[in-house]
Design a binder for these strands. Sequence first.
DNA 1: GCGCTCATGTAATGAGTTACATGATTGA
DNA 2: TCAATCATGTAACTCATTACATGAGCGC
Lengths: 183, 183
Amino acid sequence: MSLPHAILTALLEKPSSGLELTRRFDRSIGYFWSATHQQIYRELGRLEADGLIRALPAEQPARGQKKSYEVLPAGRAELARWTAASQDPKPQRDALLLRLRAAAVVGTAGLQSDLRRHLELHGKQLAEYRAIEERDFPPGEDAPHKRLQHLVLRAGIDLETFWTQWLTHALAEFEALGDDTLA
Amino acid sequence: MSLPHAILTALLEKPSSGLELTRRFDRSIGYFWSATHQQIYRELGRLEADGLIRALPAEQPARGQKKSYEVLPAGRAELARWTAASQDPKPQRDALLLRLRAAAVVGTAGLQSDLRRHLELHGKQLAEYRAIEERDFPPGEDAPHKRLQHLVLRAGIDLETFWTQWLTHALAEFEALGDDTLA
DNA sequence: GCGCTCATGTAATGAGTTACATGATTGA
DNA sequence: TCAATCATGTAACTCATTACATGAGCGC
């Protein structure tokens, strides 16, 4: 039940059309809550039906025509309620760790190259986060909403840092073990 | 498409019934791939229909009767294929970070106590992982499958360490901001 | 027999993914 | 006018979650 709230947040930051939202999910918001345009359109329809958002007038609502939405007071209230509500952390799901555990049983053949690929991807993501940090969060900033946003970015940076370090360590272990242990 | 492979791995480690698998998912395997008993029974049915596992004879297969499964050669082959196949990392999804971003817009009221709760939960998980490490991975161990298992556990420990550190940092920021900024 | 736990399931719903469809706009 | 791109959607399917159902065995 988080996608509608992700959309409400995005629309509060700036009223947008479905495609604009999709692009923003591909960038900043999608860093910790991804969504496809199909999900977004479906959810926009529901949110409008529930009276939490409304289409901005001005544009005619026809297929192929841009249609922008803004958040209504009921939507803001629902987002505030959800933000404050206690929620349990979702149990982890990580396919790569699962594959490592499987490899302990059926052999490590083929895994090493994918570990390298993941290391590269996480390294890129880390670099991207760091660039955003340098651009958007100069030292000495202290507006509350800025500090909260920085906190979120920090989590992204630290997570990617963890992955690059762990993958580097894992690859070193693989070097020591050889490429097809237990096969 | 990871649940069937998680089950194959678990069954290769030790043939089990549905409920035994459920318990093992609650413990070790579920640390990075959780599943409920309903998912597990459904998936066991599919895996059996696909000829990747089979029910051990000996026990009669009636409702309320224990039914154990073992992996067939085709199942082991499928697991090896999946382990070696290249897979993209799944985009992150974290509701807590989303809530922080929402809080930057609608206010931080109520969030602080949930951050504390999460910190406590992650602290407990970290302690549990460390206990497992001490119990199952004494220094100087070097059997390949042991080293792979240790690598996976290390990822869990480092991830929980990241969360406890980040949450501690976040709470310090909240102290500095006051409990209901921007409300 | 009654309540409890063990063990295996079914049903309904919701969330996410993949593939495809359709109209509008723009530039060659 | 044709192709490409922008923009909004539908449909079908898989995966996950929640709630409930059913039978077996055991202790009292």
